[in-house]
Computed example of a mutant assay.
Amino acid sequence: MKKALNIIFIVVGVLVLALFGVRYYTKSHSPFEKLTAKGSRDLKVELGYCRPLMKGRKIFGELIPYNTVWRTGANEATTISFSRTCSFGKRKVKDGKYSLWTVPGERYWTIILNTETGQWGTNYDESKDYLRFKIEAEKTVEPTEQLTIKLNQVADNGIDMTLNWENTQLNIPIR
């Protein structure tokens, strides 16, 4: 009996180490970045995401199909948190932490805030959506090699979130 328990503990230990190894390996190809920005009236926005590279691939419409939910990054789902109730893309959002998902389209994208956080991969549950809205995607002249999300403070003390990858740019105001 004692020998069986020791074997079980060893197997569980090896599996846990393997899980951490896989996560470390995948993040080495799509590094994690955490952003923070402050706006007016004690608004603080934090965003965490993993940054995949194009590596010569066609991204939108092929690697990431149009009209399909995407985790908006690599590895675990991208997260965004708001310190107070604010507007996100002109929609009211309560303070809290959300996962950020998108549905890329050729001209318009659907932006999704979901109440479930911490998912690895594409474990998306539509029933936990908090907010959805469409936004027009802009085409850029120069391609962006690595997925880049920025939180930029603007003159009216708000924050603009921009997403750039391949030849696509999204701009989402946070006020």
Rank of each mutant, 00 (worst) to 15 (best):
K2F: 05
L35R: 07
T36E: 15
V12R: 05
Y108W: 09
G21C: 14
V103K: 04
P173A: 10
R71S: 02
F9S: 09
A37C: 05
T122Y: 14
T79V: 06
L151C: 12
L63C: 09
L17P: 03
K27M: 10
S28D: 13
R175K: 13
G48K: 05
F82S: 04
G21T: 14
Q169M: 12
A137R: 01
A137Q: 07
G39Q: 01
T162P: 08
E126W: 03
Q169W: 00
C50L: 00
T36W: 07
R23H: 07
A137D: 09
E46G: 00
V14F: 14
Y25G: 10
R175F: 10
D156E: 13
V141H: 03
G61F: 13
T68Q: 14
P52M: 01
T140Y: 10
G13M: 10
V12I: 15
A37M: 06
V69C: 00
P65W: 09
L47A: 05
G89S: 11
G56S: 14
N123M: 07
L43F: 08
K94I: 00
A74E: 09
R71G: 02
G158Q: 04
A74T: 08
L151N: 11
R91H: 13
R107K: 15
D42G: 04
E62Y: 08
M1I: 05
L63W: 10
A37S: 12
G56Y: 14
T148S: 15
L53R: 12
Q146P: 06
L100Q: 04
N114Q: 04
Y124E: 00
L170Q: 07
K92V: 12
T68R: 12
N167L: 14
R51Q: 12
K55R: 15
D95A: 15
K55N: 15
D125Y: 12
Q169G: 02
L163A: 08
L35D: 08
P52A: 04
D129F: 04
K92Y: 02
R71W: 04
P65H: 09
M54L: 15
A77D: 07
Q119C: 02
W109P: 02
T68D: 12
L47T: 05
N164I: 02
L47M: 13
N152P: 02
V14H: 11
F60P: 01
K90H: 14
N152V: 07
G121V: 03
W101Q: 03
W101R: 01
I159C: 03
G158D: 05
K92F: 01
N114G: 04
C50N: 15
L35A: 09
R23Q: 11
T68I: 11
P143A: 12
F133Q: 04
K44T: 15
L17Q: 03
G39N: 01
P104T: 07
Q153Y: 00
L43W: 10
K58D: 15
S127E: 11
Y130H: 06
Q153C: 02
V93K: 09
L19C: 09
I135Q: 13
L163C: 09
L63D: 12
T144Q: 14
R107G: 11
Q153M: 06
Y130D: 05
D156Q: 10
T102R: 00
V103F: 03
T26F: 11
G13V: 07
V22A: 13
V45Q: 12
Q146D: 07
Y24V: 13
K94N: 08
E116G: 00
D95V: 05
T117K: 04
P143N: 12
P52W: 01
Y25P: 06
